[in-house]
């Protein structure tokens, strides 16, 4: 079952003068239950607008959003207790303490002090729980925002840039938190531009560009789709090595201090055999690493792809 379904979502913002701005241009998206789903895209690609439409904060110009089976436009109340969310920077009540911020919202769903305390401990704010939020750093506010999203003990978490304002240790904690939540059987839908984090914590991703989804699927598939796999070879004499590999019928190219062989990692033996025949010895042989950042930049630098 898909916990988030987006069909033909289009969102335009009207302006006093000129053409309307198209924030989302016909987005189709399906997020299956369970795991961490990364929602990626450069600034202005329509991520936050999509999340706002999902949470009923913005009305789609056309198309449909469904969350846990409920239409976001008309039926959200039915499922809102099962959805925790954080949209951009958390909107907090600065005069209230962290505990009071949580308890005021928690009461709307009948949640008591024990649930509030559990969340404060989970996001590492138990020691500052009774300080006013206006005295909090950006990172602490972000933690509290995540805490607000967790308070309902939700099946689905929708988090928009949850690592914003966090230091490296905080980012690591968020990554572990997201993984932990997914391990508990929840679905985490997280938008982010910190691609290294997404690559480490997400099971599936969708990449947005110019209001459209240009690629989506399991992270491994997205990383490898549309590109050949390769091996990186380092040795003392690159010229002789290149000749040896070419003579052996392999496709190899010379890089800066290395050779790239167009070959799957499972066939690495063919490389070593070709080089040994010419009495050339390796200093390094490894699969070429394709980072999400590379794929992301390729897909979003002016590319107009179809949704995957």
């Amino acid at each position: 079952m898909d916990v988030v379904e987006v069909e033909g979502l289009r969102k335009e913002y009207r302006r006093f003068r000129g053409q309307p701005v198209v924030a989302v241009a016909g987005l189709d998206l399906a997020v299956p239950a369970g795991g961490v789903f990364g929602f990626l895209g450069p600034n202005g690609s329509g991520k936050t607008t999509t999340i706002r439409c999902l949470l009923g904060l913005a009305q789609p110009t056309s198309g449909r959003c469904r969350v846990l089976g409920a239409d976001s436009r008309t039926d959200l109340r039915r499922v809102i207790a099962r959805v925790g969310s954080l949209v951009e920077m958390p909107g907090l009540f600065p005069g209230l303490s962290a505990r009071r911020n949580l308890s005021v919202l928690g009461r709307l769903e009948g949640l008591g002090p024990s649930e509030v305390q559990r969340v404060l401990e989970r996001v590492g704010l138990a020691e500052r729980a009774d300080d006013p939020v206006r005295s909090f750093s950006l990172g602490m506010r972000q933690r509290l925002g995540i805490g607000i999203a967790l308070l309902k003990d939700p099946e689905l978490l929708v988090l928009d840039e949850p690592a914003n304002g966090l230091d490296p240790a905080g980012i690591k904690e968020v990554r572990e938190l997201l993984k932990g939540l997914a391990d508990e059987g929840r679905t985490v839908f997280v938008s982010s531009h910190i691609l290294a984090e997404v690559q480490q914590s997400c099971d599936r991703v969708a990449i947005m560009s110019k209001g459209r989804c240009v690629r989506s699927g399991p992270v491994d598939e997205v990383l490898t789709s549309g590109r050949s796999t390769g091996l990186i070879v380092r040795l003392a004499d690159l010229d002789r090595g290149l000749a040896a590999l070419t003579d052996a019928g392999l496709t190899a190219t010379r890089g800066d201090g290395f050779l790239r062989v167009d070959l799957a990692a499972a066939e690495a033996e063919r490389v070593t055999r070709a080089l040994v025949r010419k009495r050339l010895y390796l200093t390094e042989l490894r699969p070429e690493e394709v980072s999400l950042e590379t794929v992301f930049l390729e897909l979003t630098s002016g590319a107009e792809g179809g949704s995957g």
Partner: peptide, 14 residues
């Protein structure tokens, strides 16, 4: 100004 209205509407969408 504080955007707390956004947070509230994610708890009570009516």
């Amino acid at each position: 100004q504080a955007r707390s209205i956004t947070t509230l509407l994610t708890w009570e969408p009516r």
